[in-house]
Design a protein around this nucleic acid. Structure first.
Length: 315
DNA sequence: ATGCAGGCGCGCA
DNA sequence: TGCGCGCCTGCA
């Protein structure tokens, strides 16, 4: 009698546990979108210029990544670009928005090339770069994780978070996982995050998620603030978001092309080209921001991407 | 093996 | 306001 009661209790506990772990199943459709040609669109330039963490190169040089609730496989065939994917909603508009296809990069490169010879060279070198229009929430968490970290490890960590807390999508015979929503990530404790390899960033991610869930930081209203400075000010209130991370979020999620994120590489290249000082670390952020503003003006963020990619790939 | 990687937050002047 | 330092972890 007692043991059978025990048995049912255990069964019930297992059932509850299963329900708790069960994740939302989403109705997905396979889709395709083709472009006959597109200015400034080189896969390696786009995905390896350090702006994103969820794209992986395939054996044939194509890339697969997860964007919001979609899996996208993008491949170039000469001038043609073929996007295949699985998503809910309009695939074409997801692709056009994410790959920022309605901005003219040729025009921006022309403007930057006029600045000086360095910019002419770096825009030629990274000729196929585009600034991806990334999800605000995902971008916040991803760049908090990027602090004092390297790209392979950042990618691994984000992958683990998605696998643990996101939704599964089957595509081309493989499993992919969406980046968790704030609600989904909110299930993780600091200890859970530590186990996923976030290191000392665990508390920062936990605290930022909490602030967002409790609307101490409202994702919608911050995006609708009237100036970039006000948005930055709000971002800086988040745990783990300093100037560099805030600027990356503004550039990569909110398309603030005039924002100039300064990391060690950009510091290095700016010093090498424009400052010529032995102790590069000593040049203050303020001076570098002023310099960028003077030279690149409203295209500072774009310029940063070309410089970064150029420096990374040639040194 | 020790240092370092796409910083941040803290304590201290 | 502006510095210096410690920090998880994995990889060279």
């Amino acid at each position: 009698m007692f043991s059978s009661a025990c048995f049912f209790m255990i069964l019930f506990a297992v059932f509850v546990k299963l329900c708790y772990n069960k994740r939302e199943e989403i109705k997905m459709q396979k889709q395709e979108y083709r472009l006959e040609s597109q200015e400034s669109f080189h896969l390696q330039h786009i995905f390896e210029c350090g702006q994103c963490f969820r794209w992986n190169c395939q054996a044939d040089g194509s890339y697969i990544g997860v964007v919001k609730n979609a899996v996208i496989h993008v491949k170039k065939d000469g001038e043609k670009i073929i996007f295949k994917g699985k998503c809910q909603g309009d695939f074409q508009s997801i692709v056009r928005d994410y790959f920022d296809l309605d901005h003219n990069y040729d025009h921006m490169k022309e403007e930057l090339a006029k600045v000086d010879d360095f910019m002419r060279k770096s825009t030629e070198f990274g000729q196929g770069i585009r600034i991806l229009h990334q999800d605000f929430w995902e971008c916040i968490i991803s760049f908090i994780i990027s602090a004092n970290n390297n790209i392979p490890r950042i990618k691994k960590t984000i992958e683990r978070i998605s696998k643990e807390y996101g939704n599964k999508i089957e595509f081309e015979g493989k499993a992919f996982y969406t980046f968790p929503t704030p609600e989904q990530l909110g299930k993780a404790t600091v200890e859970d995050l530590r186990k996923l390899g976030l290191g000392f960033r665990d508390k920062r991610v936990y605290e930022t998620t909490r602030k967002i869930l409790q609307k101490e930081f409202d994702l919608e209203s911050v995006q609708n603030l009237e100036s970039t400075d006000l948005m930055r000010e709000e971002l800086l209130k988040l745990d783990g978001v300093g100037e560099k991370v805030a600027d990356c979020i503004l550039l990569f999620a909110l398309q603030k092309f005039d924002v100039f994120p300064i990391d060690v590489w950009v510091r290095r290249v700016m010093n090498e080209l424009y400052i010529h000082q032995e102790q590069e670390e000593k040049v203050s952020r303020k001076v570098l921001h002023q310099l960028a503003q003077e030279k690149f003006q409203n295209l500072s963020g774009i310029a940063q991407q070309y410089l970064f990619y150029w420096k990374r790939e040639t040194s």
